[in-house]
């Protein structure tokens, strides 16, 4: 995975900053180049960063419950920007309250996310998934 670039950020009007920093360090430790856009990141910002850095994946976090609204249309925008095949992950507390995760996963996969992670996912699980998905 040496050298593969990831774009990381917390989407929308979400200010939960702690998990973001933990993920950043974990991904770096695992050997990725990480562009961390921090909190309150718009879809456009994720996409522009991915274009300029030729990123392999965009890892979207959402903690405050509005993830579904914030993520809508993101895959389509990637396609428009010439990033049709970029890997899109999402995780955190992506919906309000406790909903059956299988349903949530289906909804986000329908939106074009390659992987959807349930609350409480540890960074290692994401790193394993990235290694698998980014195999040459």
């Amino acid at each position: 995975m040496q050298g593969k670039t990831l774009i990381l950020g917390v989407i929308g009007a979400d200010v939960h900053a702690v998990g973001n920093k933990i993920l950043y360090h974990a991904f770096r430790q695992a050997g990725f180049e990480v562009v961390n856009l921090g909190v309150m990141v718009s879809q456009e910002e994720f996409i522009e960063a991915a274009i300029e850095t030729a990123a392999a994946a965009i890892v979207v976090a959402s903690l405050y419950g509005h993830g579904e609204l914030d993520c809508r249309g993101m895959r389509e925008k990637c396609q428009e920007a010439g990033l049709a095949d970029i890997l899109l992950y999402v995780g955190g507390n992506i919906v309000v309250g406790k909903q059956p995760f299988e349903e949530v996963e289906i909804r986000f996969k329908d939106m074009g996310f390659d992987r959807v992670f349930p609350p409480g996912t540890l960074p290692d699980a994401v790193i394993d998934a990235l290694r698998e998905d980014l195999q040459p």
């Binding site: 050298g3 670039t5 180049e33 274009i51 300029e52 850095t53 030729a54 990123a55």
Partner: peptide, 8 residues
């Protein structure tokens, strides 16, 4: 165009 190591 491109960051270092980025888009070529």
């Amino acid at each position: 165009g491109g960051t270092d190591g980025g888009n070529k």
